[in-house]
Design a protein around this nucleic acid. Structure first.
Lengths: 121, 121
DNA sequence: GACCTGCTTGACGTTTACGTCAACGTCAAG
DNA sequence: CTTGACGTTGACGTAAACGTCAAGCAGGTC
């Protein structure tokens, strides 16, 4: 656990918290946890999602779909697909917001540089 | 206040909270608040930043730089510029994370569609 | 001038995502 | 066999970002 925590740069508390929330399900060997490849994959997806502002519940919904897309039957696949398209749209909206902010930040930096150049004469 | 809140689709409580945090500084006419163009601009930047996971303190730092980039003197402009480049890098990292997640979501959707097509035969 | 609507300032409550501490088990090293 | 590092559950604490009351003022209307 310590090892995985260090590897992913999170606390052991975080790992336990995610487990309690049902995001990961490590096997038990005796009393201690053994993290499967699936857990590690899901963890990476979770941490990545968090970095641009997704909540754990949003992330949980998405990572669960990775499984559902293989196992589901027709009616469920259709609901899944609809939801996935909503999520995709939402992510694209966030992408626009991020891009605009980034552009502005870079613009301000450019102003800074130009003012600095002015002051150097 | 009500009007601006509805316009931006936030609660009046949110506006007061941002004011208490020093993010906006509406003028007072008698007892009630009058929001300047500057406030509105800052609010739009704030709300946009929130959508991809920036904290209010991070956002505050950035929006304050918009002013600093004009008024500052040399030494301060240099510090500003360094910080802006850090922020820019951070935002680009978030952009990568977002893009990867979006790609995967779209991939899962594609799998869904292909499985649905299979089931339709 | 009573009434309604919206504004005001507190102050406490809530959710999310953990941090932190207690109190105990376990297992390899010396 | 004891020490020390790591593991376990449980419970309470905390920061951020508001929500949700309460209680009172202000100003336009009928």
């Amino acid at each position: 656990m310590r090892q995985l925590a260090d590897e992913l740069e999170v606390s052991t508390r975080t790992l336990r918290f995610y487990e309690a929330e049902g995001l990961i399900q490590p096997r038990r060997v005796g009393t201690s946890r053994v993290y499967t490849a699936r857990d590690r994959t899901r963890l990476r997806l979770i941490l990545r999602g968090k970095r641009f502002g997704m909540s754990l519940t949003e992330i949980a919904e998405i990572v669960d779909m990775y499984d559902g897309a293989r196992t589901g039957e027709k009616r469920q696949l259709q609901r899944l697909l609809t939801r996935l398209e909503e999520i995709s749209g939402d992510l694209r909206a966030r992408q626009r917001d991020l891009r605009r902010t980034l552009t502005e930040v870079d613009d301000v930096a450019a102003q800074c540089r130009s003012r600095l150049a002015d002051l150097d004469r």
